[in-house]
Design a protein around this nucleic acid. Structure first.
Lengths: 221, 221
DNA sequence: GCACGCCATAAACGATCGTTTGACGGCTGC
DNA sequence: GCAGCCGTCAAACGATCGTTTATGGCGTGC
């Protein structure tokens, strides 16, 4: 059921395409993303990680200070870009005369979807799904402190577009939709790869499905 | 970000009410459920676990064979009952002349909700949410082998009630709904405790919300 | 009475963990 | 030329991991 073995995790067909490209810090971050997605934060050891990254064992503590700090940087690297992207998209649609729920949801979902379709980005979505499942208070606080304002801005927009819903009701629905999206995004790494034909069309279809699902989940009577 | 420290995990206000009740095996299963929910399968050590359970360190390997087997039993104990309950509820509604989507979803959701509202059962839902996020193939196979027939039965019923949806479309929506439910159930351990007044009413409201959300997510045009 | 299975216990096993250390080469600026 | 920082490296540190072993108490059946 559990696996922490070292050797089989490095079998030939593995991801370990991360090494031999970019600086040491970037290689570590890439390998960390892949191994955290596969084996979790506890399950992935620094020895696996540095082997996959093709760097020395001590490099992690030299460049990041500790394993925990490395975890934090793995989150920061992706979430900074993701939430910036989300805010930019949101700013675009709220400026328009007739903002719809679909527009706002697209601003929330599309950036995450693009990330999950971009090679290593899909691995990060799995890391994120793991993190949500952890229910760790430290992580919760980290997310709230650094990216809480984004969620608050979107929530305010949802509240404006769905005035018939009470606050608890709205929060609840947002929570459910968030769960569905996280679940879906973290799974795309596997589903999506089944047919790589017309990648762009597939991505557009996916976006439409997710947005429609979210609209239905948020606005049903 | 990560915590595997031993001492603070056993601070006074902790869950550790598990010990000193029931047989050794049951105490171990209870403590395992709680610690796996909090710290994950890798993060929870057998030494924490046996301390919380009030049993000897060797007891786990004596009664279960290994830590992995213990994990499996933690799943079996709850999932056997849960899926049996689900099938019983499903059998009730499909026997009726006019089966609705709400009925089938209620048969799927209510048993899980009851489990998540029952003390340690809510901890198990968190364990389950973790397991889903792991994306572990071994676990996937375990679930498919032992409980796949339940999901297949429900899926067939969904397909019968939603003939306008293509198979891929249906599977997708089920996946999204499953993600939302797992996310929600695993979170109830925290949300629900905020107001313990009229527990039964709250539970009924929750069930209604989840079912309506699922109906909307599955059957939107 | 006593041999035998069942279970709890303490102690130890080897392996692996995250982290630290000290030495070594390559580079820049004086 | 050489002092000084930077990044890399092998090696070791103590701690903790899952698992195994040896011992002994306790009850049951012959």
């Amino acid at each position: 059921m559990l696996k922490r073995s070292f050797e089989p995790a490095c079998r030939p067909g593995m991801i370990l395409t991360v090494n031999s490209s970019g600086s040491t810090k970037e290689r570590i971050l890439g390998a960390a993303e892949a191994l955290f997605a596969q084996h979790g934060f506890d399950g992935a050891s620094l020895r696996q990680l540095t082997t996959v990254a093709g760097v020395n064992l001590a490099a992690v503590n030299y460049h990041f200070g500790s394993k925990d700090k490395l975890v934090e940087q793995v989150f920061r690297r992706r979430l900074d870009a993701l939430n910036q992207h989300r805010l930019a998209e949101l700013a675009k649609v709220v400026g328009q005369p007739q903002t719809t729920l679909e527009d706002v949801l697209a601003a929330y979902i599309r950036p995450a979807l693009e990330l999950s379709h971009d090679g290593n980005g899909s691995l990060f979505m799995r890391v994120l799904a793991r993190a949500f499942a952890e229910h760790d208070d430290t992580l919760r606080q980290f997310l709230s402190e650094n990216y809480g304002h984004v969620m608050r801005q979107f929530t305010a927009e949802f509240a404006r577009l769905l005035p018939q819903l009470s606050k608890p009701e709205l929060y609840w629905r947002i929570d459910l939709v968030t769960g569905a999206l996280t679940h879906a995004m973290s799974g795309f790494g596997m589903i999506q790869r089944k047919s790589d034909v017309s990648e762009h069309l597939h991505r557009e279809q996916t976006a439409q499905h997710l947005i429609r699902f979210a609209v239905a989940g948020l606005s049903h009577p």
